[in-house]
Nucleic acid binder design. Structure first.
Length: 677
DNA sequence: CTGGCAATAAACATTG
DNA sequence: GCAATGTTTATTGCCA
């Protein structure tokens, strides 16, 4: 079929060329110019990093936050050399977030915290540290406030008394004494309160106080710790491996008063919440017991990937034995450990709370969407998202059946949440070898440009094959351009910029793009001054997708099980959840841009499905649908295109594997993923 | 089983 | 001649 090369000049593509279009279908028309910034360099991303990538946006947000804080600090300290803001896409090295977080005394607002937390912008450990710090700060503030109030009261009383006692002379003496008395009483009261507080902490098993020094711990608090102090404290508490390693175990006591100032220097001083308890920081019972308990099994929750997983500690331990040794020496029952433990407890509580809330929300959503049934059983599918979709190859090959060609379901992604990270191994993501697999078009769920746009961030970073046909993508690329026309090369660039998946195997997909441009009548070539550009003939394009989802409700229901299109979403969700075990979906609701968009995408998709169902019940013809998500990328290992792949797409990886390795992973994707799980 | 569609592969033509 | 760009044909997998 030849296409006359149209001559119309850049009129927005309306040179319709005759004909019969083979029915392709797909995109809806909504356009969205939502793409974010410019060219992202294409880099070979490890498929394994998918999950991490997906958090890029979130990362940016978090980074901004952190940077802000950092800046503030810088201002305060007039430090000029600190900046670390490299590119956003770079890896969020441990140091940046953590250090920044540590330095700032300010309490992050709940929203900010949540954003950071749930977006998994940081590695779990970083998050923990941050959280801990924040919680400590908040706690401190609360205590301060409380004590302040107490003091105010006291003063007030004193004043009153003074007033009252102004008259008589003799009484004055009495007054003084009574004042003192009152004061003492107040003090006593305060102390009692402090003790209560302490007790409550103890009850939680976090704080162990030595018999001889009951009230000590509070003193510092009562005095009002300033943020800086806290900061220091936390720095100390959390940076066990840095300071600790360097200054072997000297953490014993520390005078808060002396340290309060500097917030910057890496203090080796070890601040301990309970300065007085200094001397011995060991001895604990509860903990030890549990430890010994677990010692037998090599699967110690605090040990993984050869690294100590104690919050804030990433000490490398060759083997389990050395880990145990490390654990006993570095994380013995001392104040520091106790404090960390306490914080961790709070972290857990908070997360549990959050989880509970989100579960509830999820349930409500599902109920609302009538998906309830899927939740429990759908498990198998959702999980696959990653697997099914992205890993098409593996999964499908292994057991075709297992991968039901999933119908679509916007909600599907949600289910995974409950499932947990378990399945999310990135491994699957990378498929290998070219397999000619198509996605199931069974239900051609209409995927709109909006859909594409909404998931941009995800596809940009995740090497997941987008569930759209080449035609749809090409159209999207063209429509997104200001002139609604693009040269072939620009189209290529759009592909690589928008989809990590297309950063490899260029020869293959480029050929496909060209093939599609030539083959489909909806793409019109227009001679331009500079050469030829391609435009979209919307009419033709619409022709190719006459069919839509069949209207049967049941069908829709089926779609909910899972869908190729959703898979990426699921994958992202799962992946992100994998490591941090943070309720992902929540994040979306919390304002995470990335997740939010995913969520909205899901919603859209759902709506779209419903819409179709309602409107065309007749159209159940075979549709085409978006490409299935994916077959595995061929692993031809084609060198990336020099042109297109310049960018560093370094991802922030933190997701699947151990968080510990999150910083920079430049390995080739392929390798990385295969091993996990 | 068949037809349609999309992906993939590749041959070939055109152009700068 | 080469690479980029286009066109076309063939093959394959998947689905209705």
């Amino acid at each position: 079929m030849m296409q006359e090369s149209g001559t119309e000049t850049k009129s927005n593509g309306s040179a319709i060329q005759n004909g019969a279009s083979s029915g392709n279908h797909l995109l809806e028309c909504g356009l969205r110019e939502g793409r974010s910034n410019g060219e992202t360099p294409s880099v070979d991303i490890g498929a394994a990093d998918l999950a991490h990538l997906q958090q890029q946006q979130a990362l940016q947000v978090a980074r901004q936050l952190l940077l802000q804080q950092q800046q503030q600090q810088q201002q305060q300290q007039q430090i000029s050399g600190l900046k670390s803001p490299k590119r956003n896409d770079k890896q969020p090295s441990l140091q940046v977030p953590v250090s920044v977080a540590m330095m700032t005394p300010q309490v992050i607002t709940p929203q900010q915290m949540q954003q950071i937390l749930q977006q998994q912008v940081l590695t779990p450990q970083q998050l923990q540290v941050l959280l801990q710090q924040q919680q400590a700060l908040m706690l401190q503030q609360q205590l301060q406030e409380f004590y302040k109030k107490q003091q105010e009261q006291l003063q007030l009383q004193l004043l009153q008394q003074q007033h009252a006692g102004k008259q008589p002379k003799e009484p004055q003496q009495q007054q003084v004494t009574s004042q003192q008395l009152a004061f003492q009483q107040q003090l006593l009261q305060m102390q009692q309160l402090q003790q209560q507080h302490l007790l409550s902490l103890q009850r939680q098993g976090l704080l162990t106080i030595q018999p001889g020094q009951p009230t000590l711990p509070l003193q510092p608090l009562a005095q009002g710790m300033i943020p800086t102090e806290l900061q220091q404290l936390w720095k100390e508490v959390t940076s066990s491996h840095t300071a600790e390693e360097a200054a072997s175990n000297n953490h014993n006591s520390l005078d808060l008063s002396t340290t309060c100032i500097s917030s910057s220097a890496s203090s080796k001083t070890s601040l301990i919440i309970n300065p007085h308890a200094s001397t011995n920081g060991q001895l604990l019972t509860p903990k030890r017991e549990s430890l010994s308990h677990e010692e037998h099994s090599h699967s110690h929750p605090l040990y993984g990937h050869g690294v100590c997983k104690w919050p804030g500690c990433e000490a490398v331990c060759e083997d389990f034995q050395s880990f145990l040794k490390h654990l006993n020496s570095e994380h013995a029952l001392d104040d520091r450990s106790t404090a960390q433990c306490r914080v961790q407890m709070q972290v857990v509580q908070q997360l549990e709370l959050q989880l509970a809330k989100d579960k509830e929300r999820l349930q409500a959503m599902m109920t609302h969407l009538h998906v309830k049934s899927t939740e429990p059983k759908a498990t198998p599918q959702p999980l696959n998202l990653v697997s099914s979709v992205t890993l098409s190859k593996t999964a499908s090959e292994a057991s075709p059946q297992s991968l039901p060609h999933t119908p679509t379901t916007p909600t599907a992604p949600i289910t995974p949440v409950s499932q947990g990270p378990s399945v999310i191994t990135t491994t699957s993501i990378h498929s290998v070898g070219p397999i000619r697999r198509r996605y199931s078009d069974k239900y051609n769920v209409p995927i709109s440009s909006a859909d594409i746009a909404q998931n941009q961030e995800f596809y940009k970073n995740a090497e997941v094959r987008p569930p759209f046909t080449y035609a749809s993508l090409i159209r999207q690329a063209i429509l997104e351009s200001p002139e609604k026309q693009l040269t072939l090369n620009e189209i290529y660039n759009w592909f690589t910029r928008m989809f990590a998946y297309f950063r490899r195997n260029a020869a293959t997909w480029k050929n496909a793009v060209r093939h599609n441009l030539s083959l489909h009548k909806c793409f019109v070539r227009v001679e331009n001054v500079k050469g030829a550009v391609w435009t979209v003939d919307e009419v033709e394009f619409q022709k190719r997708r006459p069919q839509k989802i069949s209207g049967s409700p049941s069908l829709i229901k089926n779609m909910q099980t899972s869908h190729t299109y959703c898979s990426p979403l699921n994958a992202a969700l799962q992946a992100s959840m994998a490591e941090n075990s943070i309720p992902l979906y929540t994040t979306a609701s919390m304002g995470n841009p990335t997740l939010g968009s995913l969520a909205s995408a899901m919603k859209e998709e759902l709506n779209g499905a419903m819409e179709h169902a309602n409107s065309n019940g007749s159209d159940s013809s075979p549709g085409r649908s978006p490409m299935q998500a994916m077959h595995p990328v061929h692993v031809k290992e084609e060198p990336l295109d020099p042109d297109e792949n310049e960018g560093p797409l370094s991802l922030v990886t933190t997701a699947n594997h151990s968080p510990e390795f999150d910083h920079d992973r430049d390995y080739e994707d392929e390798n990385v993923n295969e091993d996990i799980e």
